[in-house]
C-alpha cells in the first residue's frame, strides 16, 4: 500500500511540476464556473438551488480531460526507460498500475475540491437537496474512475500518447453517449442491454439521488476489468516501444 502511495505522490507532483495540473484545474474551473453561474442554463436562469448544470458540464469536461492525463502514464515511463527503473525496485506490477491510477484520481479530486464553493454558495442562496449534490460528486468520481482505467489500459496498449488518448476517447464515447443512443433506438432485450451498458444511465441514476448496487457494480467492474487487463499487459512485458 505504501508503495502505491509513493508512486501516486510522485506522479501527482510531476503533474504539478509540468503545469498539466494547473492547466487542467484552471480550464475545468473556468468552464464549469462559467456555465454554472454566468451563461446559458445557469443557476439564476433556472431559479433552482441545484447544481445539475455543473454536473453536466463536469460530466463532459472530465470525459475529455482524463484521456489527456492518462495518455502518457505507462507509455511515457516505457519510452523514458523509467519503467525498468521502477519495476526493478521492490514494486509489483499491481502497485505500479494502482499508483498510476490513484495519482490521476487524486488530481481529479483536487480539481473538484474548489467546486465545493459552488455548493456552499448555493446553500446560502436557497434550499438545497444535499443528498443529490453529494451523490452528484460521487457520480463524478465513479465516472472518473472508469475513464482513468480505460485511459491506463490504452496507455499500456499504445506507446504513442496521441494514439493512446484518442483510443481512450473513442472507447469512452461508447460508454458516454453511443450506448445511450443505441438503447433509445432498440426495444426489448437489446435495448435494455445497451441501456445497462451506457454510463450516462448509471450516472444519471446516481445524480438523481439513488445509489443502486447495480450502478456501483457497473462502475467498479469496468474499472477492475481495465486495470486487470493493464496489469496483465504489463506483466507480460508485452509493451511496444
Amino acid at each position: 500500500m505504501k508503495q502505491i502511495l509513493h508512486i501516486a505522490y510522485r506522479e501527482l507532483n510531476s503533474f504539478f511540476d509540468s503545469l498539466t495540473a494547473y492547466v487542467l484545474i484552471v480550464i475545468f474551473l473556468g468552464f464549469s464556473g462559467f456555465f454554472t453561474w454566468i451563461y446559458g442554463a445557469d443557476v439564476f436562469f433556472l431559479g433552482q438551488a441545484s447544481l445539475d448544470t455543473f454536473f453536466t458540464v463536469a460530466y463532459w469536461s472530465l470525459f475529455i480531460f482524463i484521456p489527456a492525463l492518462t495518455m502518457r502514464s505507462i507509455a511515457g515511463e516505457l519510452k523514458a526507460g523509467t519503467l525498468e527503473l521502477l519495476l526493478t525496485k521492490p514494486v509489483s506490477d499491481w502497485q505500479l498500475i494502482l499508483g498510476k491510477f490513484l495519482s490521476t484520481f487524486f488530481l481529479i479530486g483536487i480539481a473538484l475540491t474548489p467546486t465545493l464553493f459552488y455548493y456552499f454558495t448555493l446553500w446560502a442562496i436557497g434550499p438545497v437537496d444535499h443528498s443529490a449534490i453529494v451523490l452528484g460528486y460521487l457520480g463524478l468520481l465513479l465516472m472518473s474512475m472508469v475513464y482513468i482505467s480505460i485511459g491506463l489500459l490504452t496507455s499500456c496498449l499504445f506507446s504513442n500518447p496521441i494514439v493512446a488518448s484518442l483510443t481512450a476517447l473513442s472507447i469512452g464515447i461508447f460508454f458516454h453517449i453511443i450506448f445511450d443512443v443505441l438503447a433509445a433506438n432498440f426495444v426489448g432485450f437489446t435495448g435494455s442491454v445497451f441501456n445497462s451498458l451506457s454510463l450516462s444511465t448509471h450516472f444519471e441514476s446516481i445524480t438523481r439521488g439513488v445509489v443502486d448496487t447495480k450502478d456501483l457494480i457497473y462502475f467498479f467492474s469496468i474499472s477492475f476489468f481495465c486495470l486487470y487487463s493493464s496489469k496483465m499487459i504489463l506483466s507480460n512485458r508485452n509493451l511496444q516501444v
Partner: peptide, 10 residues
C-alpha cells in the same frame, strides 16, 4: 539499467 533512465523532471 542501460542508458540510465531517470525522472528528468525531478
Amino acid at each position: 539499467p542501460e542508458n540510465n533512465p531517470l525522472y528528468q523532471d525531478m
